[in-house]
Design a protein around this nucleic acid. Structure first.
Length: 439
RNA sequence: GGUCCGGUGGUGUAGUGGUUAACAUGCCAGUCUGUCACACUGGAGAUCGCGGGUUCAAUUCCCGUCCGGACCGCCA
């Protein structure tokens, strides 16, 4: 028999059906027992009168514990008196399929739920039984689907690049070293070089949704040592604006999809609507953004060539208040703050690059890439790289390569902001950080 | 990696140099004619993170250590 999701129960009134779920609550009164069942979609009450006919079931329920799983067969009745959805199940059979221990290591009741994060992470399988957590991963699924939908429609190829690397790629962030049959290899911190390789392969447009690894000992609410990176790269572009046009369309498709599928639940649980506004994402040059922050918020960041956390928040705030957008592109960063492969604009001397901020946090870095090998080599040398170490990468540019660009998008950071959750651990299925590699 | 803060029943907190360490929630038992965050009564449950020091006496003060968190730096 097919699993009936509790959210669909309205279709089954006055029918004999079979329900499977977790035990959410047990109320064992003198003459009647109520058991509230829960699945990922909803809850429903099972009602059993205490009498001779029901003796066997009454005994089962008196041994039942919360969070056990059960299989219940019976008649689903419309019962306006029941506050929980105006329905109840009158069972003819009630079987415990898995008995939970009496006390849980964490508190997963929606109205208290105060257990600290560390304990919840230790017992993540229980923590995730909460509806608000299930919703995060439902949103993640829908977001990925909406992205794929857009990309497939627009002639993208999905790639799966290797995560084990013979040479440490893309300097900057630290990489994990790993023993590989006696040799040292590295975990990929980005699919950057390989998605560019796909451009050299004539794939036109590619995307990849995959883990990335960073050996940064970062103790913040928005870093992890392993996270899901969404990467894409497109060919035959004129500038980084073509890349931004594409990302903007993808983001709008994602929010539209997530909103249409789950706004109702989102509003019930988080008391607000998902914002899928159609406003164009503002594109503010880096130098101008610095000025805006100074003039509007009297704040001067410490870094000349980049933003600090506070500046990110302030430019996000400005975009929201003055331009009515949750998103803002900051574009044309100075070369000092960017990797060697970002293309420079010949007239301005700035990189043809951008960051996308969503509600004041950086979720994307993107750019048009430098595809002209001589300039690429020159820029690598300027950044202090040895050409031998990136020789395999430079090869991609020796035999014709389309002008191209792309971006990397932090899926977990996006989810943090979507749900207004201030910690990346909460939106990661199983978080990995400097101090956590279990469960 | 730097700075700051924290660790007390299953969970979340309060509190104290000295008698039985308090409260909420959860758990167990009983009572209760249909509950719906059921209610009521009772009960079990804490070597106060670990090690050392000061003291007649340390959960409390001091030092060390482990674990965790926040902010900063790095980035997605």
């Amino acid at each position: 028999m097919k699993k009936i999701y509790f959210s669909d129960l309205e279709q089954y009134f006055n029918q004999e059906i079979e329900l499977q779920g977790f035990v959410d609550k047990i109320r064992d009164l003198q003459y009647v027992q109520f058991v509230v069942l829960r699945d990922s979609s909803s809850k429903v009450q099972v009602t059993i009168e205490k009498n001779d006919e029901n003796k066997a079931m009454n005994d089962v329920i008196s041994t039942l514990t919360k969070e056990s799983t059960v299989l219940v067969k019976g008649l689903l009745k419309e019962s306006p008196n029941v506050k929980l959805r105006g329905m109840e199940m009158i069972p003819s059979s009630f079987v415990i399929t898995s008995l939970s221990e009496e006390e849980l290591p964490i508190d997963i009741l929606a109205y208290t739920n105060t257990s600290n994060q560390e304990l919840r992470m230790d017992n993540r399988f229980l923590d995730l039984r909460q509806e608000k957590n299930y919703m995060i991963f439902k949103a993640q699924t829908l977001a990925e689907m909406a992205m794929r939908e857009y990309w497939i429609k627009n002639n993208f190829i999905e790639i799966h690049s290797p995560k084990i690397l013979g040479t440490a790629s893309e300097s900057g962030a630290e990489v994990f070293k790993l023993d590989y049959f006696g040799k040292t290899v590295y975990l990929a911190q980005s699919p950057q070089f390989y998605k560019q390789m796909a451009m050299a392969s004539g794939f036109n447009n590619v995307f990849e949704i995959a883990p990335a690894f960073r050996a940064e000992n970062s103790h913040t609410a928005y870093h992890a040592t392993e996270f899901t990176s969404v990467d894409c790269e497109i060919s035959w572009i004129q500038s980084h604006h073509d890349v931004m046009d594409m990302e903007e369309a993808v983001c709008k498709n994602v929010l539209k999809k997530v909103k249409s599928e789950m706004n109702e639940d989102f509003k019930r649980v988080f008391k607000e609507d998902i914002n899928d506004s159609d406003v164009a994402f503002p594109r503010i040059p880096f130098a101008e953004a610095k000025k805006i922050i100074q003039e509007n918020y009297k704040y001067i960041g410490e870094k000349e060539f980049d933003f600090d956390r506070k500046e990110e928040e302030l430019i996000g705030l400005y975009a929201k208040k003055k331009l009515n957008s949750d998103f803002v592109f900051v574009i044309d960063y100075p070369f000092e703050a960017r990797p060697f492969y970002h293309m420079l604009d010949e007239t301005t001397g700035k990189t043809k690059s951008f960051d996308l901020l969503y509600k004041g946090i950086e979720i994307t870095t993107g750019a048009q890439r430098e595809h002209r090998i001589e300039i690429l080599k020159k820029q690598a040398v300027q950044k202090g790289l040895s050409l031998e170490s990136i020789d395999f990468y430079l090869n991609f540019f020796r035999y014709g390569v389309p002008p191209h660009g792309g971006y990397g998008f932090g899926l977990t950071r996006f989810l943090m902001r979507l749900f207004n959750i201030d910690n990346i651990r909460e939106v990661t299925f199983l978080y990995r950080g400097p101090n956590r590699v279990n469960p």
